[in-house]
Design a protein around this nucleic acid. Structure first.
Length: 250
DNA sequence: AGCATTGTTTCACA
DNA sequence: TTGTGAAACAATGC
């Protein structure tokens, strides 16, 4: 599920535990917690409190009190943040904070591609896709010879757009995913940015990227919800891509 | 059985 | 050096 909208909802969950004292940490999953050894994150956090929750693109982090280290979290392909919910039955809680008084916060992730890390490095991330300014968007997205779809997915260009949000945005903007990023006009780039912000805002408000106008039709045999044309399907930028060959031309 | 999957990193290659 | 594309990663669901 996790793209920018899901990550923002996860950030708000983390916000709920700000101020609580951490009394125990389960960091035994050495894949999710790599490169940390078991107990490393625990010893850095036990006794502290989270003081704030932040997000850039799909990456989450929380600051800690008394100059403690930041805790970085990523939802990977299937993760979510579960606050004060009973432990998952299938060992899907890959990383857990337990708080004084019995509450808990878990990174719940079937696929195990999520991450928990101390002092995360965000230097490779571009500006958040929901907040990037017009000039930065033009400069970062409107360059290069890669397909437009692939450019939207490049977290170093702008951060937060995943496969579904990219398809939803391109459909709203009526731009082909195959366009060359560096060949878009300034007008097209500004229009694309506006549609991206709208799609993102709607998805956050309505509960996830699934709730888009295009995504429900994004299946084999699906057709364009505006004009009824059967959707095209191909791999672009390494990801399965659906689009309307009639409206998203060129 | 085989394939696809809403993400990221690494590596080979032009 | 820069950019691009494929593969690997883990696990589940159809």
């Amino acid at each position: 599920m996790p793209e920018l909208p899901e990550a923002e909802r996860a950030r708000r969950q983390i916000d709920r535990v700000v101020g609580r004292e951490i009394v125990a940490v389960d960091d035994r999953d050495t894949y999710v917690c790599r490169p940390h050894a078991p107990g490393e994150i625990a010893s850095a956090l036990v006794g502290r409190r989270l003081t704030s929750a932040h997000r850039r693109g799909k990456f989450l982090w929380a600051e800690t009190d008394d100059g403690g280290p930041d805790l970085g979290l990523h939802l990977g392909m299937a993760g979510r943040i579960a606050v004060d919910e009973p432990p998952a039955p299938n060992a899907w809680d890959r990383f857990v904070l337990e708080f004084a008084g019995g509450g808990r916060m878990a990174l719940r992730d079937k696929r195990r591609l999520g991450r928990a890390v101390i002092e995360p490095d965000l230097s490779h991330l571009g500006p958040d896709a929901a907040e990037v300014g017009r000039e930065a968007f033009r400069a970062r997205v409107g360059r290069g010879t890669v397909a437009l779809k692939a450019k939207l997915l490049d977290q170093g260009a702008i951060a937060g757009v995943g496969n579904l949000l990219a398809d939803e945005t391109l459909w709203r903007a009526r731009l082909s995913p195959r366009r060359i990023a560096g060949e878009l006009s300034v007008e097209e780039l500004d229009h694309l940015r506006r549609q991206l912000r709208a799609a993102t805002r709607d998805a956050i408000r309505q509960g996830g990227v699934h709730t888009g106008r295009f995504i429900p039709h994004r299946v084999r045999g699906g057709s364009c919800p505006r004009c009824g044309t059967p959707l095209e399907r191909d791999t672009i930028g390494g990801r399965t891509t659906y689009w309307c060959p009639r409206e998203q031309v060129g």
